[in-house]
Write a protein that binds this DNA or RNA. Sequence first.
DNA 1: CTGAAAGCGCTTACAG
DNA 2: CTGAAAGCGCTTACAG
Lengths: 341, 341
Amino acid sequence: MADHSLVRLQDVAAHAGVSIATASRMLSDPSYGGRAALRERVLASAAELGYRANPHARALATASSTSVGLVVHDVRDSYFALLSGGVISVAEREGLLVNMVCTYRDPARELEYVKRLIDQRVRALVLAGSAFRDTAHDAAMRTELLAYQESGGSVVSVTRGRDIGHLVQIDNIGGMRRLADAMVELGHTSFGVIAGPLRLLTVRDRLQGLRQGLKKHGIVLRRDDVVYTDLSREGGLSGAQTLMSRRNPPGCLMAVADVMALGALSWLRSNGISVPEEVSVTGFGGLPAAVDAVPRLTTVEVPLERVGETAMDLALRPPSPRHTVEVEGAPVLRESAAAPR
Amino acid sequence: MADHSLVRLQDVAAHAGVSIATASRMLSDPSYGGRAALRERVLASAAELGYRANPHARALATASSTSVGLVVHDVRDSYFALLSGGVISVAEREGLLVNMVCTYRDPARELEYVKRLIDQRVRALVLAGSAFRDTAHDAAMRTELLAYQESGGSVVSVTRGRDIGHLVQIDNIGGMRRLADAMVELGHTSFGVIAGPLRLLTVRDRLQGLRQGLKKHGIVLRRDDVVYTDLSREGGLSGAQTLMSRRNPPGCLMAVADVMALGALSWLRSNGISVPEEVSVTGFGGLPAAVDAVPRLTTVEVPLERVGETAMDLALRPPSPRHTVEVEGAPVLRESAAAPR
DNA sequence: CTGAAAGCGCTTACAG
DNA sequence: CTGAAAGCGCTTACAG
C-alpha cells in the first residue's frame, strides 16, 4: 500500500494472476459476468495494492469523464452559491466531480469556459447564469453546445434563450408580475425600479413581468422610473440613491434581485428614510438574507437549492427528449412593503 | 472548422506538413526554438482546423492536469462562497479550472474527496475548511497529502492542524481574544457563547481566544455558558434560545461565526428581545450580511475573498520552502454590541 | 532544430 | 468467459 500512484491496472492484474483486460472488466463493469472466484481475487488484489484508476487514462479511452461543468455568473452571490449547493449535492450522489467557473457576466468569458469544459469531456454542462442578449455570442455558444451534445454531452440551462438541452425555467415573468400586482393592490401608484444590465435575459424578463403587473392596473413606467445598475448590493445602493433623489421619489422601490434590494435597504437606512413608512422595497430570489433583513424583505421566493438539484438531475437524463421543468416564483409579502401613507 | 472534437494533433501536423512531435512542441512549448516559419505554419493550421488539445491525453502523458481542487465545508455558506470566489479568480488568471467539493463537515467525505482530487492529478489542492480533531482521519489525510506532494502536487490549508503544505492562517484566537476583550471593556460581565461542533479546530481556536480575552479580566466561563450547536443560521437560532432561556440570561451573546450570530439576532427579534438594549450580540467572519443586519453586527472581520486569493497564490508556489501567511481578524464594533444597562 | 518511436494507463472490439 | 492487441491523443527522451 505504498505509493498508490505507482499502482496501475497492470499491477493488479499481475497480482491477481489474470490478464489486464479481465482486471479492467472486473473492476469497472459490475454487470460483467466472469467467474466469481476471479472477480474476488481481482477486487482483493486491487484493495491490497491500494489501486485507484487513473481517470485521465479512462477518459482518454472512453472519451468521457466523471466530471460535470457548472457555469455561474458569480459564486460570491448567495443566489448562485445556493444553486451550486444543489448541483453539488446531486453530483456527489452520482459520484461526479463538479468543475465550477464564474463568468462575472462576461459573455466572452462564458464562451471560453464552456469550451474549456467541453474539452475536458465533462459528462454534463449546467449553465446556471442568465443568457445574454447577444446574437453573435449565442451563435458561438450554440455551435459549441450542439457539437458537445452530439458527442454525448448533456446540457441544461437555468435560463431561457438557449434552444438546446434541458431547461429549468424559473418563472421570472410571472413571479414579478404577481409581485407588481400585489404592490398595486397594496395601494402603490408610483414605482421606482432598480434593474440590472439589460443584456441579461433574466433582467429583461423580470422587468417585463413587472410592467405587465402594473399595466393590468393602468400604470405605465416612464423612462426615468427605471435605473440600470450593477447586479449587486452596490448596484442596489446606487439605484436607490438615484431613484430617491428625484424630485418625486417613488412610493415603492422594486429591485430585480434580492442582493440589490438589500443594498437599497441599506442606503435607505443610512439616509434615514424609513421602510415601509416612506417607501416600500421589494426584491426577487428569496435569499436567506431576505428573511433576516430589517424590515424583512418582500420578495419572490425561488427554491434555489432545489433549482440546482433539479438542474443536475436533468443533466443525468439523455438529451432527448428535451425536458423543461418550470419553477414557480412565489411572492412573499413581508414588512418591507406596506400600503403607502 | 467542423466538429473540432475530431481534430487531433495529428491532423494539425499533417495540415502543416510537419511531424506530430514538432506540432506538439510548437503548440505547447512557447520557449521552444524552431524555425519561425514552421511555428507560424503550425499555429495557422491549428487555428484553421479549430484544434483544441485533449487535456486528458495531455494529463496522461505528463502526469499532471490543469485543474486545482478546492475543498470547502459548505458553499451555501457565504463564508466559503466568498473564499471560493477568491480562489476561482486567481485560478482563472492562471488558466486553471477549479474542482470544487463540499464536505459538509464530514471527515470521511473530506478524505474521499481529497483522494478523488488527487487521482485527478489536480495541480494543487486548496483545503479551505477547518481541520478536524480526529487522529485517525488526520493520519489518513497526511498519508494522502504527503504522497501527493511528493508526486509534485501543491497543498495549501486555510486551517491549522495539517503539518504539511502552505498555510493561510486566519488569526482565530487573536481575533476572538480582542473581541472578547472589547466586550468586557464595554462593561459586560456575563456571557453566553454559541459555539459550533468541538471537533472543528477553528471552533476550538475561537473558543480559546474568547476564553483568553475574558480571563484577562478575571472572567471565567462556566460549563453551561457555552452551547454547542450546528455551525449554521439554525444553530444560531437554537443556541440563542437555549442561552436566553436560562434563569440568568447573559448580557452578551458571542457566536463563533457570523451565520450563527445572524441566526441569534433573528431569534431575539422574533422573541421581542431588543439588541443591544437587553443583550449584545457578536459574530466572527465579516460577511457582507453582517453589515446589513439590524442592528449591524459586531464581529471580527476577515478579508475572506483575499484569503481565497492568497491561498490560490500560495498553491502556485513550489511546496518547499513552506509558506505561512498570517491573516489578522479585526474586531469591528457595531450597533449589535453596547454597554449593558 | 526535427522526426520516428515509445510510453502514459486505461478500455474494448476481436478471437479463441 | 478470458486474453492479446490495438487504440485513445498527447509528450518526450533518443537519434539524427
